[in-house]
Design a protein around this nucleic acid. Structure first.
Length: 420
RNA sequence: GUGACCGUAGCUCAGGUGGUCAGAGCGCCGGGCUGUGGCCCCGGAGAUCGUGGGUUCGAGUCCCACCGGUCACCCCA
């Protein structure tokens, strides 16, 4: 038997219903905040991700689905959405539109990691980006938006962690100071951290090993290196959050896995997710648009992991809507009649089902019952001869025989009852 | 990429120390009610016991490998 690829999941009807419901909640909140949807390819040139996410990040180094297409180009299934949004922003000159430009996109992302709770190889994100807003007020508004979406899905007990990564101006000197510190203690650090000390010193700080963390108690803090502007921005951000009654935890060790972030970064964690407890994360990336060839454009964004959000939402199991009418035809002529009638009623907005398998009346009614149909229209050979049909109320079990010419009138009244 | 645990019908699971052990419940199809659902009763279809080797007279039950699932590490949504 051919099975789905590891880490790729099918969503059966019941699950797809919940997924869709979540998406609808998100879209409604996004609408209130003034965001517009964009739809993007899930395949991009590998170079786009290498340049935006960062060459030495785990994502680029070992998690991307990269391959050569038939013309020899290196393409990659997107591991995250921001790079593609920025690419489209530049490619279509969206920087000429009124600012701020608020966009969101929903779709699958791909990362070749070992699957576990809250982690798939194909997973889905709601990705939200704002271009052309430099102030911390927008950072805070995005946090409020993320929390609003998550709560609309029923997520509770969310924990917001924030930090500031500074700008290239202040992060450079800090990075050097940190690197020096790491080298001075390298004997006492784990293997991973020694490697990080060279390639990506900031990442060492969120090492999970106790031994390393003990050393880092004395490590220089980025907050001490923030330039005046970055410090003020961070302060404003916190002020706005407080203004909105949004509780947060400052986590000076918080670092993100992508290189493009500047200043504000945040993560929203939820209980009950196991080891992967971050359900949404994002931050500011003021340098990315220009780095990819666009005009200097401040930008902030975040992404919500749909599957993780799902895990902490109230899984509102929505079934397929029940039919208004189930037509139970007996005999070939009745079946043809049912076929025409079903199409007619559907055109008028009724949800109608029938069955052409030539099953017994008993089987047909069982089917109608299972579908939770409101009425069954029994169309037997006897009825057909008399130009009548039996309309049965499936809840009460009462039924009446009525001539075809009354059928239309009755169904019209039924229609009105349903639609209004 | 590393580790631990797990893998029997569509689903949830039973199957001491290897020898009618290939089962149950639910679901599905049908019958009892020859044209009337939901309850009840009866019957049926459906499993090469994840795959491939090995040990043995004999393996779902033991061993090995592989595949897959789950959780954790790394990292991340």
């Amino acid at each position: 038997m051919i099975k789905a690829v590891r880490g790729f999941k099918d969503l059966l009807p019941e699950e797809a219903g919940v997924f869709r419901w979540l998406e609808e909640q998100a879209r409604e909140i996004l609408r209130r905040y003034g965001f517009s949807e964009i739809r993007l390819p899930i395949l991009e040139r590998t170079e786009l991700f290498a340049r935006s996410i960062g060459e030495s990040t785990d994502i680029v180094e070992k998690e991307m689905y990269t391959f050569q297409d038939r013309s020899g180009d290196s393409l990659t299934l997107r591991p995250e959405a921001t790079a593609g949004v920025v690419r489209a922003f530049i490619e279509h000159g969206l920087y000429n539109r009124p600012k701020p430009l608020k966009l969101f996109t929903i779709g699958p992302m791909f990362r070749h990691e070992r699957p576990q709770k809250g982690r798939l190889r194909q997973f889905h994100q709601i990705d939200v980006e704002v271009f052309g807003a430099a102030s911390a007020g927008m950072d805070a508004e995005l946090v409020a938006l993320a929390l609003g979406i998550l709560r609309a899905g029923g997520a509770r007990d969310l924990r917001l962690e924030i930090n500031s990564l500074g700008c290239p101006g202040c992060r450079g000197p800090y990075r050097e100071a940190l690197r020096e510190f790491l080298f001075s203690r390298r004997e006492r650090l784990c293997e991973d951290c020694r490697r990080r000390a060279e390639r990506n010193p900031l990442r060492a700080l969120d090492c999970k090993r106790e031994g390393c963390q003990r050393e880092y108690q004395e490590a220089p803090m980025l907050s001490a290196f923030l330039c005046e502007d970055c410090r003020r921005h961070y302060q404003h951000f916190k002020t706005y959050l407080q203004e909105g009654g949004i509780l947060f935890i400052e986590n000076p060790r918080l670092v993100r896995g992508l290189d493009y972030y500047t200043r504000t970064i945040f993560e929203i964690k939820a209980p009950g997710l196991g080891a992967q407890d971050t359900v949404a994360a994002g931050g500011r990336y003021d340098g990315l648009v220009s780095a990819l060839g666009g005009p200097e454009t401040p930008a902030v964004g975040f992404a919500i992991g749909m599957e993780r959000w799902w895990l902490v939402s109230r899984g509102s199991q929505r079934e397929v809507a029940a039919p208004d009418l189930f037509i139970a035809p007996l005999g070939e002529e009745a079946r043809r009649w049912a076929f025409r009638l079903a199409a007619l009623l559907r055109d008028r907005g009724l949800k109608v089902e029938s069955d052409y398998e030539g099953r017994s009346l008993k089987a047909l009614l069982r089917q109608a019952d299972r579908l939770s149909a409101r009425w069954a229209l029994i169309l037997g050979e006897q009825e057909l001869q008399e130009q009548r049909a039996l309309l049965r109320d499936l809840a009460s079990g009462t039924q009446l025989s009525l001539p075809f010419r009354d059928l239309e009138d009755l169904l019209n009244r039924v229609l009105i009852e349903i639609l209004f």
